[in-house]
Design a protein around this nucleic acid. Structure first.
Lengths: 138, 138
DNA sequence: AGAAAAAATGCAATGTTGTTGCAAATATTT
DNA sequence: AAATATTTGCAACAACATTGCATTTTTTCT
């Protein structure tokens, strides 16, 4: 498990550094999505804030993580479990926010359902966020 | 039309002030959702930034407007057209972001489609954001 | 309508979040 | 192991958002 991060990084054409390994690790062991602040908290003693920002940006660019829409002012990131390529995400799955434990979870196997738009509207992408109680809190 | 703002405000138990009337007006005449920055631009000569922040907060609390999830770091607000109560929003309609003109539009008549969740997940609310080209830009 | 009470506003200060340029440190290539 | 390329940390900065308090405005009460 711990041996995999270098491979993931190399496959994306990235240099293997301590910060990238550690941050990737956090995503791998997280059961939900992470906010920048979460990562900063868990690494503040180790890495500079700026490094965290840049690492997240890089990961998004390379298709390792994707960002999740939220209603408040936070950006959440989660691993791309399906084969995302650089700059091209296939995150057409539903995101779930548990109102009890507040975790955001990617329901990788639940695809966003189709929706009928009014005349003269054309669809490019669709995102869906569901709120409720997750399996752990049930 | 212009006569309605005071009623809306009073019905929500709010004092009727110039800033609230003006900001509510902006929402009533807007054809899409508004970001804080939009409102600030259109009122900067008149009201303090802080007032705009507080007014938006108040409107959300009272169920006059609701916030819309976005993938980037911005918060968008739109009128609650269906009967929202304080703290309890019924904004179960689809939001549409035009990638050409960048407007966000509430598709009030398009309800969020049903989605099957995995076992042991229970749904409370669902939000959907569609990206594409709107009727005006077609 | 006018006075008292309640609520909202503006200002200044402060906190939070995210970005940029550049020198030092680390990783990769040969 | 040396040369090159990339990443990191620092410092400064910019944008965005919040808080306390005095002043102003709105509402309530008589």
């Amino acid at each position: 498990m711990t041996k995999l991060q270098p491979d993931i990084l190399k496959n994306s054409g990235l240099s293997v550094t301590d910060s990238r390994k550690k941050i990737l690790d956090l995503f791998l062991e997280a059961d939900g999505a992470l906010a920048h602040a979460d990562i900063e908290k868990k690494t503040e003693a180790i890495f500079n804030r700026v490094t965290v920002y840049r690492t997240l940006q890089t990961f998004v660019e390379k298709g390792i993580i994707h960002s999740i829409p939220t209603t408040d002012n936070s950006i959440l990131y989660a691993l791309c479990k399906h084969n995302c390529e650089a700059g091209h995400h296939h995150d057409n799955h539903v995101h779930f926010i548990c109102s009890n434990c507040n975790k955001t979870i990617c329901l990788d196997d639940v695809t966003v359902p189709e929706v009928k738009l009014p005349k003269n509207f054309s669809k490019k992408q669709a995102a869906m966020v569901v709120t409720g109680i997750c399996e752990d809190c049930k």
